[in-house]
Amino acid sequence: MNSPAIEIHDLTVSYREKPVLWDIDATIPEGSLCAIVGPNGAGKSTLLSAILGTIHPASGWLKIFDQEVGKSQELIGFVPQRESVDWDFPVDVLDVVLMGTYSKLGWFRRPGKAQRDWAMECLEQVGMADLKKRQVGELSGGQQQRVFIARSLAQDARLILMDEPFAGVDAATEEAIRLVLLDLKKKGRTVVLVHHDLQTIENFFDHVLLLNLRLVAAGPTAEIFTGENLLRTYGGRLTLLDEAAEAVRRIRTGRSRTGRDQ
């Protein structure tokens, strides 16, 4: 196994004294494609924020590439949930992607031709180069998601976090994101993403982290993504039980889909 990209030790995060993540211990190896899975309110997005260092843990610590999160200068690529911004904002596609280059520019400097070329390259990777002058509000939901993905590519980071990138996107976008992820994996980047579609986990992600306030299980998908673990993750939540049961059934019958071909 590779050296760890992320080490989480004894992590507890509270929101107004109420723990939203409790006693998490996990290691995510470098170069892996890791899915964080769990029911709503399980603390998946909170875990991403803790890795990013935008919220402070109540106890425990996190290390990224062997450096503590608060002190690390390591740049982390980030794709927030699409709903987290106001898409009526007056910027065009290229402007948003260029934001990915900002942190390397430093204060006062503006992105120049080199940054624009690089941003265009990232836009091409998600198949959006033609739309660079579009105001972001005129894009479809899937295209907006691809702009966010392109922005995270523009950050050119070793570690990239994505918060539900596949939520509510069209088939073309799903395919584009899939290709981007495979490409990142080929380049040895580490990608951690919050994912909600249990059916696509097995064949795509090599690592899973099952989360429900506490860590249910974490490790290579083949070992961890078992029916028993899934039921432990989703158990008790009746509405989600069906989804879990369905996934379990697929695992048991050995019949699973690799994505689009059903």
């Binding site: 990013l52 260092g53 935008t54 200068q73 740049l75 982390i76 980030f78 927030p80 987290s84 911004v85 106001d86 904002f89 910027v91 402007d95 948003v96 934001m99 990915g100 900002y102 942190s103 520019l105 204060w107 006062f108 503006r110 992105p111 922005r151 950050q155 976090l161």
Partner: peptide
Amino acid sequence: ISLRKELLVSCFDPRFGLSAKI
């Protein structure tokens, strides 16, 4: 004018700004 890019990120997507060490 001189803080254009910082202001842009902070208005559009402050959480991304935090993550990008802005």
